[in-house]
Design a protein around this nucleic acid. Structure first.
Length: 138
RNA sequence: GGAGUUGAUCAAAGCAGUCGCUGCUCAAAUGUUUGACCCUGGUUGGUUAAACCUUUGGGGAGAGGAAAGUCCGGACUCCAUAGGGCAAGGUGCCAGGUAACGCCUGGGAGACGCGAGUCCACGGCCAGUGCCGCAGAAAAUAUACCGCCAGGUUAGAUUUUAUAACCUGGUAAGGGUGAAAUGGUGCGGUAAGAGCGCACCGCACUGGUGGUAACAUCAGUGGCAGGGUAAACCCCACCUGGAGCAAGACCAAAUAGGGGAACGUUAAUGCGGCCCGUAUAGUUCCCGGGUAGGUUGCUAGAUCUAUAUGGCGACAUAUAGACUAGAUGAAUGACUGUUCUCGACAAAAUCCGGCUUAUCGAUUAACUCCCACC
RNA sequence: GCGGGUGUAGUUCAAUGGUAGAACUCCAGCCUUCCAAGCUGAUUAUGAGGGUUCGAUCCCCUUCACCCGCU
């Protein structure tokens, strides 16, 4: 994936929708920023629940997906582990963003997420993106 | 060489590469706005400058010793400039340091250790009050249960001695209870005893010496004050106004800046313990309406590093140099290769000074004890 | 982030510094053909670690867990 050609800015990508001119940035445009945007997702979402995570998704009408995280203090006690979960999820989102449709996604943690190690969590999340896209397309 | 004591410094394991995140800075491009100029009757338009948004490229920076707990103390902001009294709370050997402290340094008393050293909420129950369960004679004005001793009466007895019971008096040595019982040991003394007397120890008072002081030490006097508890009320000395960056300020947008009722200058609110004092000119309830963001505060400071001087030290002063996170659903990660000893506790959120708690280790300085050798 | 509060049997609550108690629950027995109800009996606790005190649920310190308020 590191051999992808680079240099094409986003506004060009938006114009011709080329599959070859992808890049893998993660800016504020790719996040849910305020309470309104979060509430919109919590209103009427498509849910995908597995043992350690809950994913909520809703279509957003933009050209790219957006991500929001809600990792509670109850499930991940220390700030270090909360930050670790967020970073792994964000990294996976960044690398897989072009496989996901135009969705607003909120990810919640469930009990036991601390027991996973870094590679297990990454593998788990990588699987969820494809499932989620199929769920929302149907 | 071994065993220890006290500090100081470091600590995302290190190196290389690719992708990515948040500020800062430089350059370029597109766009928007504003100003000036040009063409023109006017508009459109063109040139140039500045600011802003977005994108691209380059450079550089980017979690801790505890960032934690929120246990103390400050800065800062608003309430009134932070006032007076009472209440409430805190601190508590002495001297110093500090912006301040419940912190730190040095010294003293006490306890522990062979020692280097360590620990220590360490004012006052002869100002007053309260409490001390059970047990015990008695738990605070001391008292007299068992004892011990003397005298008397009665019983018994040939008589005396001795014995038993009762009464009166003396005693605080001995006994048992308890966490705690009115100085300890020894000698003298006595009917038995007792600081009744003496020696030593302890205690209290007075004076001298050393020390800024806490205190230490010496001499004399008194014969002995008087239980514990103040992290019980309390007394004494000192300190403390309240709320907290979700404090507060500004901008844009929107508006209801409305209607009704009640209270009211001897009053209401600020003033969130109470009163005084003081400031403001309204305040409260009901109906109805609205609810929403952005910027700033936000990191240059009781700052850090080095040197010199003063001080036992905490620390202070002077000179030179450095700029070292500032996010806002919240930034430090992922992957690949490689090396080793296979990597603890753990993430800034206004900022500092401490304390406490968690913690794999590494380096280093000073000192103590033991063993061996010279 | 800032500021408050609470920890006692399995549950809900009491308890001047002096043997931690009540109700419900659970268990055993009695009663009943059996179950329920009733009666009798028994088990079970001061979040943890220190300190003050002769003696701490209580007073003080540290720590852990939980709850609440403020955009």
């Amino acid at each position: 994936m590191h051999d992808e050609p680079r240099g094409a800015p986003d506004y060009l990508l938006d114009q011709n929708l080329s599959e070859t001119n992808q890049n893998f940035t993660f800016t504020k445009a790719h996040r849910l920023l305020d309470k309104k945007q979060f509430n919109r997702v919590f209103q009427n979402p498509d849910k995908l629940i597995c043992t350690k995570l809950v994913l909520l998704a809703v279509k957003n009408g933009l050209d790219h997906p957006r991500l929001g995280l809600a990792i509670s203090k109850k499930n991940a006690k220390h700030a270090v582990t909360r930050n670790w979960v967020k970073r792994v999820v964000r990294e996976s989102f960044r690398l897989n963003q072009h496989l996901i449709g135009s969705l607003d996604i909120v990810i919640l943690s469930r009990f036991g997420i601390v027991e996973l190690d870094s590679s297990q969590l990454k593998e788990l999340i990588d699987k969820q993106w494809a499932k989620l896209t199929r769920l929302c397309a149907s």
